[in-house]
């Protein structure tokens, strides 16, 4: 374990770990949006900025991508950090004024009004959905398109995400809850990725429990027997 300090409090981070996870483990709150422990840190939202002092030099860095280093001093609430964090929150709020979570965060930081032209987006471009889809699920069904201020998270070529297995991992990780899933009859749809898949029913209880396409993929990947998914998760246990 690597010893260092956060806001004067001695902490220990794991080898190869980052500041943010160490802080969260130690119960020190640092606001963040694009970080999720199930995927590699990415450093896109820039909300988790902290000031890092090492060898007498101080600099701002995103705590999620900054590796823990012995003896460094981390400060999470300096004047500079708070000033930058507030402006970044305001920028995100101006982009996605309808997101509840962002509204709450902004309120907590004392942002009453946005000084920029409000846009009507809902996605904060944190990239968590695509990273979970790639790193955890292995489907790699969605990715960022375009660059600069035209950047968007969309299904390939704005059409149906044909690699999507409708597992719903993206629905779960989305911090602002804008990826929705609906189930109607024997169909499951991930609305944002324009993906609708037929569900398989359990041979015992008859309930639809998962998309055919998904189960076939799993069987193929894990080399499972043909009848492995004949029963739903409840009936199998």
């Amino acid at each position: 374990m690597i010893p260092f300090s956060i806001d004067g409090q001695p902490v220990e981070g794991r080898e190869g770990g980052n500041i943010l996870e160490t802080a969260l483990d130690a119960g020190i709150e640092i606001p963040h949006l694009c970080f999720n422990e199930s995927v590699k840190p990415y450093g896109a939202c820039r909300l988790c900025l902290v000031e890092v002092v090492r060898n007498g030099k101080s600099r701002m860095a995103a705590s999620c991508t900054h590796p823990v280093q012995k003896g460094m001093e981390v400060f999470t609430r300096t004047e500079k950090v708070l000033r930058a964090r507030k402006m970044i929150t305001e920028l995100i709020l101006a982009m996605c004024p309808g997101d509840k979570l962002i509204q709450e965060m902004a309120k907590g930081m004392g942002i009453d009004e946005v000084r920029f032209k409000k846009e009507e987006k809902d996605c904060i471009l944190c990239g968590l959905c695509a990273r979970v889809c790639d790193e955890v699920v292995g489907a790699n069904a969605i990715h960022f398109a375009f660059r600069g201020d035209r950047r968007e998270m969309i299904p390939p070529f704005q059409g149906e995400a044909t690699n999507c297995i409708a597992c719903g991992a993206c629905v779960v990780v989305c911090p602002v809850d804008v990826i929705r899933m609906k189930e109607e009859g024997d169909e499951r749809t991930i609305i944002r990725w324009k993906r609708t898949l037929k569900m398989k029913s359990c041979k015992v209880c008859g309930n639809y429990f998962a998309p055919w396409f998904q189960l076939e993929k799993f069987k193929e990947k894990a080399k499972l027997p043909k009848d492995f998914y004949d029963l739903c998760y409840t009936c199998r246990s």
């Binding site: 820039r46 930058a84 970044i88 920028l91 101006a94 375009f146 600069g148 201020d149 950047r151």
Partner: peptide
Amino acid sequence: LKDESCGKCTSCREGTKR
């Protein structure tokens, strides 16, 4: 720069645009 930023960091993408 707002066109050529990669768009990853909020501060750069939104900052240059604003």
